[in-house]
Design a protein around this nucleic acid. Structure first.
Lengths: 234, 234
DNA sequence: GAGAGTTCAGGTCAGTCTGACTCGAACTGC
DNA sequence: GCAGTTCGAGTCAGACTGACCTGAACTCTC
């Protein structure tokens, strides 16, 4: 029979945050911000942003708050990932962590706050993190990579308007493989979710591309997934 | 800044259990077992099986235990569904529930324990449940119905060996639409996951069908999903 | 200012996949 | 022995996808 838990059990909320940034070679890759632990256990190690869940705060709000505290930005996409609760995942008390994952816009991420206790690292080559956080980020990466193929969340990395080449770059960075530009255009247009703004992006040394805007109002064919939030309250 | 939670916050584990059973008309549909609440709040209402998380018990083990306590059976499939933590979902203290969903074998479910405080109901026509449990079951149903289309979890409803017609019945009951027998056979065989046992099922008033066995050892084309468990420890 | 170099936008084509359908095989019940 | 059923295997047309082609439209270089 279940027994009431005692004060040794604590509930935390953490968030895996993803943004696209250029790597050393200038190619866009996934980055994630980490915070340095300022207290025991695991003092000094890098960890996911997060904290204890306040009694009167919603889980998703707590996730958005820690995200803002770390990056100074509001997520364009925020969704619950998984709840990690292994008995031995923290050396001291039993800690159950409700983990969210978030996408933030690339150009805003470029001017994200940085400091001695906040550090952005490439999501695919993580250092050794505190607790089971390496495993958590790997799962979040897996979820992002599978979900980007059957949903329309890629635009969350971009601004209000974008070209098809920019959108394709997002897919290529997330999926880590090149996509045929012509076929990519065809499938994106066929999805019915893109609206032409009527404007072109001038300045490049080639034919100026059309600017598009994402249209979320189009009804999805299948049933819409519950419990996701687009542009949550900041 | 996050503040440490106090004793007003409690962590629970619940499970949505699905099994196939014939309805009044004899057609196989999804059923789920409920338990009657024996204490306040919501005393007397029907609710999901579950309980408080013991400090030294793993989340998944706690889910399997409550499942066994309710149905007397071991699940053939068990996976974390979502964590529900709205501040006002329980009238008294703040309760955060880590919810799992499980599939149990049809013929075993037929001899599941029943009593004044345990009741099986058709999953699509639920009575008014305690707390936010209606919403939770609906989400679990959505997850089952979408996931059965791109994974191989349907066989979890069946025994060791089964005919293609039996497997098709599972899909039809879950998806709530008829499937073409010939096309169903083609795609199932093409998946490479079915092994002929060499035996036939005799006795029916038609050509005897082959018996198949599910082969989990075949490598999946895409990356395998983490954090699912097939046949967890009972 | 003409040509080179680039990507953009739209198209073709072949192979794959999927839903609808057909037909003989193999059993039981009458 | 015939009717009725599902089983198992096959056909066919349309949809979809990856590979590829071509003219359009811009900037940069000479």
């Amino acid at each position: 029979m279940p027994q009431p838990h005692d004060a040794q059990m604590r509930l935390a909320v953490s968030t895996v945050i993803f943004a696209l940034r250029p790597d050393a070679a200038g190619r866009a890759v996934l980055w994630t911000p980490l915070v340095r632990r300022t207290r025991e256990p695991q003092l000094g190690l890098w960890a996911l942003p997060g904290g204890w869940l306040p009694v009167n705060e919603e889980l998703e709000v707590a996730a958005a708050r820690t995200l803002r505290a770390t990056t100074g930005l509001a997520p364009k996409y925020l969704e619950q990932l998984y709840t990690f609760g292994e008995v031995d995942r923290s050396p001291d008390a039993r800690v159950v962590s409700v983990v969210y994952w978030a996408l933030v816009q690339s150009d805003e991420a470029a001017r994200a706050v940085a400091g001695p206790n906040v550090r952005w690292v490439p999501a695919d080559t993580l250092p050794g993190l505190a607790f089971d956080h390496n495993r958590i980020v790997e799962y979040a990466l897996w979820r992002l990579r599978t979900k980007v193929e059957y949903t329309e969340l890629a635009h969350s990395f971009l601004g209000e308007t974008f070209t098809l080449a920019e959108l394709r770059e997002v897919y290529e960075a997330v999926l880590q493989r090149p996509l045929d530009p012509a076929n990519f255009r065809r499938t994106m247009i066929a999805s019915g979710r893109l609206r032409e703004t009527g404007e072109l992006l001038a300045g490049a040394a080639h034919r100026p591309p059309k600017l598009y805007r994402y249209d979320a109002s189009v009804r999805t064919a299948g049933a819409r997934e519950p419990f996701q939030s687009e542009r949550p309250a900041s």
